[in-house]
Amino acid sequence: MSFDLVAQQPKLLYLLQGVAAFAAVVSLLLLALHRGPVRRRAAAFLLLAPALLLLTAGLLLPALRTLALSFTDSSGEAWAGVENYVWMATDPRALVALRNTLVWMVLVPLSATAVGLLYAAAVVRSRFQAFALSLLLMPMAVSFVGAGVVWRFVYAYRAGQSRQIGLLNQLVVASGGEPRQWLVDSPWNVLLLVAVMVWTQAGFAAVLLAGAIRAVPAELDEAARLDGASPRQVFWRITVPSIRPTLLVVVLALAIGTVKSFDIVKTMTGGQSGTGVLAQEMYDQAFRYGETGRGAALAVLLFALVTPLVAHQVRARRRAV
């Protein structure tokens, strides 16, 4: 134990020095702004400079480094051209990971948003609204790793005449069916992993959409009902169009998070049986197989998938403001 503490001392010292230097720079900037007249643009730049410096060191430079590594061989040193990208476009395992990632990007945001919308519409006017929303929000308190462990037991399978411990197989046996290896059977295993992600994210969608539904003017609902509209018509023709900006934000936020999904797949299947996704394949190539160039190429592809979603979300928020 004492050896570990001694080994960690230089790292702690460097961390403290970095924090102290950052605090000193910020203090000097604030002092300069306080003592002398500075134009608004110059003041804004000075205040943003430390954050921009940290973003450059923590995000921009690593991104450029990853892009450069994607054109190198497995060692990350010798130039390999577009060989890694050719591998990514032809390797069956990489193509399966890309296909599954696209499936996740479509199914998870739409399913979680649909569940959250219907649930929010059902409980938003009730007296127990806060309690009902908290029930659906509870899975968000569980990490993706924890959710994967829990649902792996739900999908558990025992061969032969052994008593099934998985909830899903218990229900199948109770209804007269035969138990199945759910996490091995394709394509059901991919859909069942998607269901876990939806379970964890539906509460996020429900809370945001419930707030948006409450913000819809009551006069619109009353006017529609006076015109003879049914509750279903009021919901689809008045409520849903009124909360469309929030719906878009929720879908985009879930899509961005889904592209980077890694924990659930890694915990439940390890990417086996055709369940791999790009983030998990990137990890395997870079850290398990030592293929630095291939892992970097997959990271670049992930960045390319996320960038349009982020740009669209920023544009939508600007229009909303």
Rank of each mutant, 00 (worst) to 15 (best):
A121T: 02
W104T: 11
W199N: 07
L252P: 04
V216C: 01
V265D: 03
L301F: 15
R40S: 01
M140P: 00
L167D: 03
V6K: 09
F153Y: 15
V251S: 02
A206F: 04
F71Y: 14
M140Q: 12
P217T: 12
I243M: 01
Y14Q: 11
V82S: 11
I165E: 13
V6L: 09
Q161E: 11
T246F: 01
S230L: 08
A215L: 01
Q233S: 10
I165F: 15
L28K: 03
T269P: 09
Q129N: 09
Q129G: 03
L13H: 05
G58K: 14
A316Q: 09
L67A: 15
G271P: 05
A122R: 07
E83P: 00
A212S: 08
E291R: 12
K260E: 08
L192E: 06
A141F: 12
G295N: 07
V150K: 12
V198S: 05
F45S: 07
W79P: 00
R214L: 11
I256S: 06
V265G: 06
P37W: 13
L67G: 15
I256A: 06
V149A: 10
V38S: 08
Q313Y: 12
G116I: 04
R152S: 14
S143A: 03
W182I: 10
A174Q: 12
P187N: 06
P62K: 11
S111T: 15
A63C: 07
R244A: 13
A78H: 06
N84F: 01
K11W: 08
L193C: 10
P92M: 10
F287A: 04
A296I: 01
L133Y: 03
Q285A: 13
H312R: 13
L135G: 00
A304I: 09
Y283G: 02
G36S: 14
D263Y: 11
N189V: 11
D284C: 00
G270P: 02
L252T: 05
D227F: 08
A206W: 03
L220S: 06
V265H: 09
V6Y: 07
V124K: 12
T246Q: 10
S242T: 04
A24T: 13
L305D: 04
L278R: 08
G116E: 02
L53I: 12
K11G: 00
V259E: 02
L16F: 15
Y119R: 04
A63S: 13
G228E: 10
N100A: 08
R163H: 08
R40A: 05
V250W: 02
G76R: 03
T275L: 00
A147F: 05
G58H: 12
R294V: 06
F204Q: 11
R127M: 01
E219V: 06
V249H: 13
S175R: 10
A132V: 01
A195V: 15
L52S: 07
V198C: 05
A43Q: 14
M138S: 04
F3N: 07
S242F: 02
A63I: 05
L191V: 11
T258P: 01
A24W: 10
A159Y: 13
A132D: 00
L301K: 09
A132L: 06
T101S: 04
L67N: 07
F303G: 14
L107T: 14
L135W: 02
V86W: 09
L226W: 09
L98S: 05
S186F: 11
A141L: 10
E222N: 14
D4S: 10
L110V: 15
F128D: 01
